[in-house]
């Protein structure tokens, strides 16, 4: 069965080389989609993968570091990235764009924000929130054995490269940054804190399933400015789609689908929820989401 598909693809490639550029067909080479270490990105990548497979493309997934990926796209080692968060990746993305080879193929409607965050039960214990000065004033209630007198800020995995350490230093906050090993470790800590309503402040973002499970608020830091360490992250960041420059030429129809991709905050949160709360495998979560939202993604197909 599979072999037959290969043969067909091969024949198509042959036809292409004889037929000349007039017949713009997608190349039979696989489109390589990078996978990162947060759930919605993985699920979205698989959704795209399913769509492209249905479109007749061959697709491969590789896991990649979420910062290094832009350099890889630029070189054509991987071909796209479906979730470029402004707060986290704008710097790497822009740096790669400046060198050429990579561009934004589209943008989601979703608005992103990544920031220090607390669940609502903390608000009673530390009056004056969400202001950051109020947070700093009651830092000691966040203290843990590891951090001694200072409050603990639970950061994301180090490879997300948030400037938390630098911010703590620049703003002279009474906090120590402890990095969780993974997103799941963040939620595990949050769930554990919920049991006794222990005060906790951690890294969180939207769109994310966590907003549905644990109501909470972002801490308000001074508004974002380019290159300012004593400021917050962008409050209404973009969520873009990055693509390799060669993609449009090699796989025109796949590229068209990619550029039509457009998810909203609730949709993305739902994807994350399927994995992080329901415990589905990302592949299964992608299929489950596609079954639920057939109209949405059908509209983006050719």
């Amino acid at each position: 069965m599979q072999r037959k598909a290969c043969l067909l693809a091969g024949a198509a490639a042959l036809a292409l080389s004889f037929g000349g550029p007039a017949m713009a067909e997608d190349s039979s080479d696989p489109i390589i989609i990078p996978i990162h270490n947060w759930s919605s990105q993985i699920v979205m990548s698989h959704i795209l993968g399913e769509m492209l497979t249905e479109n007749g493309n061959s697709v491969e997934f590789v896991s990649a570091d979420s910062q290094a990926v832009y350099e890889a796209i630029r070189l054509g080692d991987v071909h796209l990235q479906v979730e470029v968060w402004e707060g986290a990746f704008a710097e790497s993305f822009d740096a790669a764009r400046a060198q050429g080879g990579i561009h934004a193929a589209g943008a989601h409607d979703a608005i992103t924000r990544e920031e220090w965050w607390y669940p609502l039960w903390v608000k009673d214990q530390c009056p004056g929130l969400p202001d950051w000065e109020a947070l700093n004033a009651c830092a000691e209630i966040f203290a843990t054995p590891e951090t001694g007198d200072r409050g603990r800020f639970l950061g994301g995995p180090v490879d997300w490269l948030k400037n938390d350490h630098e911010r703590v230093e620049a703003m002279d906050l009474n906090f120590t940054v402890v990095n969780a090993g993974s997103a799941a470790a963040l939620w595990a800590e949050l769930a554990a804190a919920e049991r006794n309503e222990t005060p906790i402040v951690l890294f969180n973002w939207t769109p994310n399933f966590a907003e549905a499970v644990w109501p909470g608020e972002f801490v308000e830091f001074p508004p974002w400015e380019e290159g300012c360490l004593a400021c917050g992250h962008p409050a209404d960041g973009y969520l873009k789609i990055a693509a390799w420059d060669g993609m449009q030429e090699n796989w025109p129809s796949a590229y068209a689908i990619l550029s039509r991709l457009n998810f909203t905050n609730p949709q993305i949160a739902e994807m994350a929820r399927l994995v992080d709360v329901e415990g589905l495998d990302p592949e299964d979560a992608a299929i489950a989401w596609m079954e639920e939202n057939e109209d949405t993604w059908r509209a983006w197909m050719n």
């Binding site: 996978i35 270490n37 759930s39 993985i42 590789v62 896991s63 570091d65 997103a183 470790a185």
Partner: peptide
């Protein structure tokens, strides 16, 4: 650094606890 296979899977599963 993007090697697929068992390691990647294990990493994902461990990170997802």
């Amino acid at each position: 650094i993007g090697m697929p296979g068992l390691g990647q899977r294990l990493l994902q599963m461990l990170q997802a606890l």
